[in-house]
Design a protein around this nucleic acid. Sequence first.
DNA 1: TAGGCCATCTGGTCCT
DNA 2: AGGACCAGATGGCCTA
Length: 357
Amino acid sequence: MMTKTFGKSGDVSDLVSSLGWLDEDGSSQDGEESPEMRGHHGLTMGGRMHSCTEMGSEDMEEEEEEDDEEEIGPDGENAPKRRGPKKKKMTKARQERFRARRVKANARERSRMHGLNDALDNLRRVMPCYSKTQKLSKIETLRLARNYIWALSEVLESGQSPESHGFVEMLCKGLSQPTSNLVAGCLQLGPSPMVLNKLEDKCGGPGVGGVGGQAVHPLIYPSPGLPSPPYGSLEASHLLHMKGFKGPVYDNPSPNECSSGTPPYDGPLTPPLSISGNFALKQEPSPHDSERNYTPHPGHHAHYLSSHHYPTSTAGGLPGGPQGHPLFQASRYELPLDVAFDSFTPSHLLTSQMGTI
DNA sequence: TAGGCCATCTGGTCCT
DNA sequence: AGGACCAGATGGCCTA
């Protein structure tokens, strides 16, 4: 591991261990270095450290000197004195301060990324087809969110029905095929009889409540006589109480818009109508709060990943690509059994469940 | 096995 | 000086 990592860097492993890199940040409580540290030892020491201002190569050479008080130039005693300001020696005290700063910075960075992920998770919850186990990837979540805002704005402006293909196509614009299939399946526009059967199994049948006693979105089970889900009032204007439905008002996207796996941002997509006033945010406790106290574990990645499944975007076709629009293809992606449509309630979620995004 | 996605560490930069 | 933010790099896990 270390030998492999430092293979190109020469013998710096001694330096690394002398600096205490293997046991920083509590990441190696049992004395083993974490995988992350393994990787970054090689990176830091082997390459980028040369441009580091905090610990430049000269400082590193100084660090190799166990005696803090000796001052020997990089090339030995006979080396000409450097011009310019003298670099501070990396004494042990400085090393310790540096490590302490680094440890704190790492913790802050972790916390920051956790916050970012929490916000992303909150965003997932207000997206169509939220599933606790089949989470959308980060990039797909952002794309779907963009499309969702755009589609809702279109609904408000043009009166387009949220049940139309146009609405769903707007939602799926630029998404990967698996995600598009997921959305289409959620909105019952895709080839989803099997999917719906699964959902019925899970939900107790169309219109019979939702997962865990939560409401089923009426777009999925628009049968008459369904109990009114506990939506707020805004969703009525957004999605559910659309009057004067004029049928699909969808403008087909340009042929090249969905022709790549990671479609570039196709223009400003400025929503025609501002709905910013609908975002009355109310923070709810995050499910990750209990994970805030980071306890590094060799298998923490496995633990995380084993409990989250992401629809991979590598499954071939792309929207508008050679395989055609995903909404009208045979489903290659099955919905998870626990897809929770209760989150597909735009306004009440926006007003009551939406955390800080 | 390759590719996607992820968490993490890290150094640089900017700001207070 | 220290914190926030960012991007690069790395390795692990999962899936096709």
